[in-house]
Design a protein around this nucleic acid. Structure first.
Lengths: 339, 339
DNA sequence: GAACGCTATACATACGTATTCAGGACGCTA
DNA sequence: TAGCGTCCTGAATACGTATGTATAGCGTTC
């Protein structure tokens, strides 16, 4: 029955106006009279007309689309960081509200990702999601800036950052988690997380941890610090190594929930109960509340984070400049840390 | 320094050919001589030229983009079904391999989703992801078909389905899970899952459950069947109600992992240990292996599922027809079901 | 040696929209 | 009634690509 998609000319014919008027009416141009606009909208409704995204984009030289780029090594079968997945829903929503579409991709799918998206006008800007270790990508980020590509990163609010950044207040999170454990009477709190220079978030959490300890008159003990990437496996291994090394500890603060869950497994495997040994994580991924016992953790506000990312990027696209943002965090106390 | 994005005319000028030749050279048209193609590619490389997606799409009347539509009620703060999130990575990958971009959206963001994407040429086809309850959307699906929109659904392989469908072998999964429990010596196996007509997957799992019981000479007992949507909360409530009703059971087969995890929590809360009461789930979401004890579950092959979805949709777009697919499942035995 | 076929390229054009510019209608003032 | 400004609309055009059609070059055949 419908042989051809309707164009703005078809609408124009029905509404008895010209094609440009249709375009103006639909885009809310104030120089179109109310009466005309009504006729145009009615005609568009009648034919189920939708503006052709390609034609519109071509004419306006933009895509009205953002690209979400997971900025991690993802060896074939590994999972995307769960925290990023919790950002996904709110980001999609915010994009829709702001009139943008959201494309999704992985960094390693294109060696040229840093030019592909904007150069082909598939997207007007890029959201980079990558947990730490961004140092190795820094040259590419610089290339992005050099080319004038709009992008925003989820990362740390630390110094030496490059490009617009949205982050949680990692230092404060580390402080609150540690303070909570101290208030529970813990004194020997292990810190589990990768401390390498490429993970500024974790560095900041560590700094918060140290501040809390010192505020309680305790000097951080390097023997209580173990490296572990954000994965169940590494978290488990880290605690296992603490135990086998005979290090004395009564609580664990892990810089990521997945590592914290691994830590709990290691404790249980060693016959130690949680919260007898208290455990606190960071992120508040969905699995945190499903763990047993449910995991006390530093909650990052994924809704605000998502909105901040989208808004910052759009502002950068539309007005050229955008300011970094640091979002507050909140301690969510569950059963893994209170006797 | 670069004031303007290069176009195919710029490449043509450098390579000493005409614009159409550039287009043909880049698209691999065999009527371009090797020598010319080399020159064109070199020029393109030199200027960092990328084909303009809008212009290309406009000319070819397609977007080379697929839309991923989460087809669920997502009241503001609820999570996307974790199983779908495990599909995400592989789908993105497959799309990239097949030369398509992937857009992401939620059903409820647009009341007109069933026309929006294809009508505006933002996407050439739609992937619908929605756990069960599709009956209420059936009218919209019919509208999609009527309009000739290409789409594929994740669902059940059952009868009366509409449109191209990719699914797991739910019946077999239910059979294997139940058979496993029977082999462990369990006889009173509770079934937890929504049995309404709108959830054909769950119906099929139930059928497999019944088949396994009957093969062991046991007649299914309706008192052992409790409704629960796929959520931790409903799974917990379902088991709590079984316990408080005084129903006798020695194992639980839950039709979703999240419900199974909820079930374990209810058991632990009631002082019952797992696997003293054995628990088996369905889906194999990431949290399943993180639960304690780790959850035995029916693993759906998310890689094959993702690829089947993408391939089926692209085939439908490019050649008009596509066949349904039913994928095999596999029981993953962990500690929640073996003493 | 003229007609023909084949290959590789150029020319012309269309895709559907948004915007610039020009102009018509109308009301107001002098 | 001429002059002017305001408000709305139409005509023309450009965005960058892909493709149908035409053509130039060149070897082949009878």
């Amino acid at each position: 029955m419908m042989q051809r998609r309707p164009t703005s000319f078809d609408i124009a014919a029905i509404a008895g106006v010209s094609q440009p008027t249709v375009s103006r009416a639909l885009s809310g141009n104030p120089s179109v009279s109310e009466e005309t606009r009504r006729r145009v909208l009615a005609a568009a409704e009648q034919l189920n007309y939708k503006v052709d995204k390609n034609a519109s984009g071509l004419r306006r030289q933009q895509a009205k689309t953002l690209a979400l780029l997971f900025f991690e090594e993802l060896p074939e079968h590994s999972e995307i960081n769960p925290f990023y997945l919790t950002l996904l829903g709110p980001m999609v929503r915010r994009c829709a509200d702001r009139g943008y579409d959201l494309l999704i991709s992985f960094q390693q799918l294109s060696s040229d990702w840093h030019v592909d998206y904007e150069d082909s006008r598939r997207a007007d800007g890029i959201i980079l999601l990558g947990y730490g270790n961004y140092l190795q990508y820094r040259p590419k980020l610089e290339k992005l800036i050099e080319r004038g590509t709009h992008f925003v990163r989820w990362g740390s609010g630390g110094d030496g950052e490059i490009g617009a950044t949205v982050s949680s207040d990692n230092e404060q999170g580390g402080f609150e988690a540690t303070t909570h454990l101290l208030r529970q009477g813990r004194r020997r709190i292990a810190f589990i997380g990768t401390g390498g220079a490429g993970f500024p978030e974790v560095q900041e959490r560590w700094r918060g941890y140290c501040r809390a300890l010192r505020a309680a008159g305790i000097e951080p003990d390097e023997r209580l610090r173990v490296d572990a990437a954000p994965s169940e496996c590494e978290g488990r291994a880290a605690v296992a190594s603490l135990i086998s090394a005979g290090v004395d500890f009564d609580a664990i603060f892990a810089a990521s929930d997945v590592a914290a869950i691994g830590a709990m497994h290691a404790l249980q495997q060693a016959g130690l109960s949680v919260p007898e040994t208290a455990v606190v994580g960071f992120d508040d991924i969905p699995a945190a509340s499903l763990a047993s016992p449910p995991l006390t953790t530093v909650t990052q506000d994924s809704h605000r984070a998502a909105e901040a990312l989208i808004d910052t990027l759009i502002q950068s696209i539309e007005s050229g400049a955008a300011a970094d943002q640091v979002l507050p965090v909140r301690l969510t106390v569950r059963e893994s840390s209170v006797r």
